[in-house]
Design a binder for these strands. Structure first.
Length: 561
RNA sequence: CGGGGUGUAGCGUAGCCCGGCUAGCGCGCCUGGUUUGGGACCAGGAGGUCGUAGGUUCGAAUCCUACCACCCCGACCA
């Protein structure tokens, strides 16, 4: 592809709206342009990368027996009503104004629609159906460029099986395929066991890439590979001690002491001797949640433990319920339900709020003073705590979700009546799994992991071109002729070549563009080397430059690529 | 939806507080010439409803009101 004739609008300056490196570089390299918030066009160079990613995904999906479909983006609303997902998606689902259609954010309904009445015998099963298409979600806040958009390309696959054993197998096929896909794309990723949530017993795994731009927070053990979303992650942490002698409790004046840190400083005690109180409202009733020291309440854990709706109490409510403001609340004299984190189990000689502003209570024995208290794992894991599997240090960081594989079960087949007949002529709902990959996220994550101050550093699998051929002075006829010839020869050798044949640009300009676009190898044709029959070969990843005889160029390229 | 911020030429921005603008600068673009191994130089040139609407004023990019768009933080995230 000749740069002189193709649309690759590179930018020297950093676009003001872009924040994360991949977003900045995708715009600067002329790969994407924003049309509206969360809505992007892929320019030719960027679309070439999208195609490469899709090709890899398609190959691996076909390799496990996947059959590619093309589903409509426009869906009748009715079918979404039947599964109750118009309500479940809420504002995330785009609605068409002048007809009863919605824009599909995913395609379980359509898959079930096609399976219904058509996949009717156990002999028809299993099936793996997939598509690689645009999805629509009315994200309240699109961000990070192409990573969270209102319109995005997703590969989603669905397995149809006669039973859960079949589902297990289909799931494991996808697990393997996903690892191959992300490996081939050259990504550093890890796999997180996600919560089974409301699906109960079903398994779900997320493929994640570590990134500050991520929207999930992950606890990860480098030693044994334990990885979990902090919403469900567990750790080994020091318990509050139970002393042999239990003091009786007593009130302490603590003027202006609000936080645990202030309390510890004021009383010269350790935070392991304190219990922090948080008030939550659960189904309209107050619940006191006691945490050890400065531990944070994990609201996801709390919610799944209590069930129903949970929210933190408002400041006015706290006063009304406890008689004190936040910072002086505690278990002694609290009249409603109390639950506590397991680290506090049976602890004594504790300090906590007195439910009276500017007072705390010491000498609390939870076993004695709050006997009806129940204990649960309610804390949020923090960096440096110990892994529950191997006792190594856990690290907590942000990550981007690239893919998710999920055992759906019979939720959709039951809702839509998608049944098959078994050997005995008995009817059963088809068992489904669903498996997604964000195509743009692979694109963006690769860049997040492979760039330097000059630009992107592609590796061969996703690189839009293998070679960036640079002719330094196209007005010099010898150079122009040699570079043209080289261009055709390299293509004939089977390389994908981006050819900078622009007439007026200075050498530095071309070099910088080449570094920005980031093809794995640059071949530079300039007067200096060409007069001796040489060209320069630069490897983008390590900036290594070598002068190579034209006759030996092909051998050199094979070495690098 | 809450908090903060920004909107001026294709991109990046100055001017806004304290009204006087015929709106400045850099990059890019066009023409001619010189240049060609790390974002060249000279000369000439095109390009703006100053986000939109309304208001205040002799006069508005500048002050006021509403709306819209975009960014960041938070909430939300199947």
């Amino acid at each position: 592809m000749r740069l002189s004739k193709n649309f690759v609008p590179t930018l020297k300056e950093v676009p003001s709206d872009a924040v994360i490196p991949s977003h900045v570089l995708m715009i600067r390299a002329g790969m994407i342009r924003m049309v509206s918030a969360g809505i992007y066009s892929f320019l030719p160079l960027g679309y070439k990368i999208v195609q490469k990613i899709i090709d890899i995904i398609r190959e691996e999906m076909n390799a496990i027996g996947g059959q590619e479909f093309h589903f409509p983006g426009l869906n009748p609303k009715e079918i979404w009503d039947q599964t109750g997902r118009v309500e479940a998606f809420g504002d995330i689902l785009f609605h068409i104004k002048n007809r009863e259609y919605v824009l599909a954010p995913t395609h379980e309904e359509i898959v079930a629609f096609h399976a219904k009445g058509a996949v009717t015998s156990y002999k028809d099963l299993p099936q793996i159906w997939y598509q690689i298409q645009t999805k629509f979600r009315n994200e309240p806040r699109p961000r990070s460029g192409v990573i969270r958009g209102r319109q995005f390309i997703m590969k989603d696959a669905y397995t149809l099986d006669k039973d859960f054993e079949g589902l297990d197998y289909g799931y494991s096929l996808h697990d393997q395929a996903y690892r191959k896909i992300f490996d081939r794309c050259g990504l550093k990723y890890f796999v997180v066991g996600a919560s089974s949530g409301a699906m109960g017993g079903s398994k779900s795994e997320e493929f994640m890439v570590r990134s500050d731009a991520g929207e999930d927070t992950i606890a990860y053990c480098e030693n044994c590979g334990y990885a979990a979303n902090v919403e469900v992650a567990q750790s080994v942490s020091q318990k509050a001690p139970r002393h042999s002698e239990s003091k009786s409790y007593y009130e302490i004046p603590t003027p202006n002491v609000k936080s645990i840190d202030e309390l510890c400083a004021f009383l010269k005690i350790d935070e392991h001797e304190t219990a922090k109180s948080r008030i939550y409202i659960h189904d309209g009733k107050p619940v006191l949640v006691l945490m050890l020291g400065n531990d944070e309440v994990n609201e996801t854990k709390l919610q799944s433990m209590l069930g129903g709706q949970v929210r933190p109490g408002h400041p006015e409510e706290l006063k009304e319920i406890t008689g004190a403001d936040a910072g002086s609340i505690g278990p002694i004299g609290f009249k409603h339900k109390i639950i506590a984190d397991t680290l506090l189990k049976d602890a004594n000689n504790l300090y906590s709020g007195a439910n009276k502003n500017d007072f705390h209570i010491g000498g609390i024995d939870l076993k004695r003073d709050a006997p009806s208290i129940e204990y649960f794992d309610l804390r949020t894991v923090e960096s440096g705590e110990k892994c529950v599997n191997c006792n190594s240090n856990l690290e907590v960081f942000k990550a981007i979700e690239l893919g998710h594989i999920f055992k759906l079960g019979t939720k959709y087949s039951e809702a839509l009546g998608v049944n098959y007949l078994d050997v005995n002529g008995k009817e059963h709902p088809i068992v489904m799994g669903s498996y997604g990959i964000g195509v743009e996220r692979i694109f963006a994550c690769f860049i997040e992991q492979n760039f330097d101050e000059k630009g992107i550093i592609w590796k061969k699998p996703l690189a839009p071109f293998d070679i960036h051929l640079i002719a330094l002075n196209m007005k010099n006829e010898t150079i122009a002729r040699s570079a043209d010839q080289l261009y055709y020869e390299l293509i004939a050798e089977g390389y994908e070549v981006l050819y900078d044949d622009r007439l007026d640009l200075s050498a530095g300009f071309k070099f910088n563009d080449a570094d920005l676009l980031g093809m794995p190898v640059q071949v530079i044709v300039g007067e200096k080397n060409l007069k001796d029959g040489n060209v320069e070969v630069k490897t983008r990843s390590n900036h290594e430059k070598q002068v190579v005889e034209l006759s030996k160029l092909n051998i050199k390229l094979k070495e690098i690529l």
